[in-house]
Computed example of a mutant assay.
Amino acid sequence: MQLTPLIAVHMTAAIAAVAIGPIALWARRGHASRQPHSQRPRLHRAAGYAWVALMLVTALSAIFISDPAVPNIAGFSAIHLLIPVVLFSLFLAFRQLLRGNVNGHRKTMVSLYVSACLIAGAFTLMPGRFLGHMLWSHWLGLV
């Protein structure tokens, strides 16, 4: 597999989502009633919308990425199962907000960040994966 424009878009959006996610999660910590003039809720909303947009780009671009070296069905491998999980989780998180379920929204977003960004991101750094191969072989020269 080589670095195509599609993979570059996917990878850039994913890395940016990993970086922006903690800002969105941190910015909402605390109580707005104790911080009436705080910018943190605005920061939370701005970083949250940016993170959601990046996750949508990451998930939707993944639809068109396939590696024939990985076992797949019609070009879709097991990692592609994250696409509907991400899309459904984002839908669920916004639905929870619309219904006033802030706690459910928070839990959904935290679990989505952990599963789709941290855990899936860690798997992409394995030596046999494209990004892992670039990291360990080309950039660090370890493998």
Rank of each mutant, 00 (worst) to 15 (best):
H31Q: 13
A69C: 00
V18D: 01
A50Y: 01
P22C: 04
M55G: 08
Q39I: 13
Q35K: 12
A24H: 01
A62V: 03
A32W: 05
A50H: 03
P36Y: 06
L56I: 09
H31F: 10
P22T: 05
A47H: 10
P41N: 04
R29A: 09
R45I: 09
A59G: 09
A53G: 15
N72M: 02
A53V: 11
R40Q: 14
L56A: 08
V70D: 07
A74R: 11
M55K: 07
P71F: 06
S33I: 14
Y49W: 15
I63P: 10
G21W: 03
M55H: 08
N72V: 02
I20Q: 02
P36R: 09
R29L: 12
R40M: 15
H37A: 15
G21M: 08
A59W: 03
M55W: 08
S61Y: 02
V70I: 15
M55F: 09
V57C: 04
P22E: 03
A59E: 08
L25S: 02
W26H: 12
A50G: 04
G30N: 05
L43R: 14
Q35C: 01
G48I: 01
R40T: 07
A50F: 00
A32P: 05
W51T: 05
A59S: 12
R45H: 13
N72W: 04
A27F: 05
S61A: 11
R28H: 00
A53I: 08
A32V: 12
W26G: 10
W26K: 11
P41Y: 05
D67C: 00
A46G: 04
V52F: 12
F64Y: 14
L56Q: 04
A24F: 00
I63H: 04
I63V: 15
M55N: 13
R42F: 12
P41R: 06
R40N: 14
P68M: 02
A74V: 07
H31E: 13
D67S: 11
L56F: 07
H44S: 07
L25A: 11
G48A: 06
A24K: 04
I63D: 06
L25V: 05
S61L: 01
G48C: 07
T58H: 02
L25Y: 00
A47W: 06
P22M: 03
L43N: 03
M55R: 08
V18K: 01
R29H: 07
V18S: 01
G21P: 10
I65G: 08
T58M: 14
N72G: 11
I63M: 12
P41W: 07
I23A: 10
H44M: 09
A59K: 04
T58F: 05
H37T: 13
A62L: 07
R42T: 13
P22L: 03
R28Y: 02
S66E: 12
H31K: 15
I23C: 03
I73H: 12
S33P: 00
P71M: 08
P36M: 09
V52M: 14
A46H: 11
Q39M: 14
G30A: 04
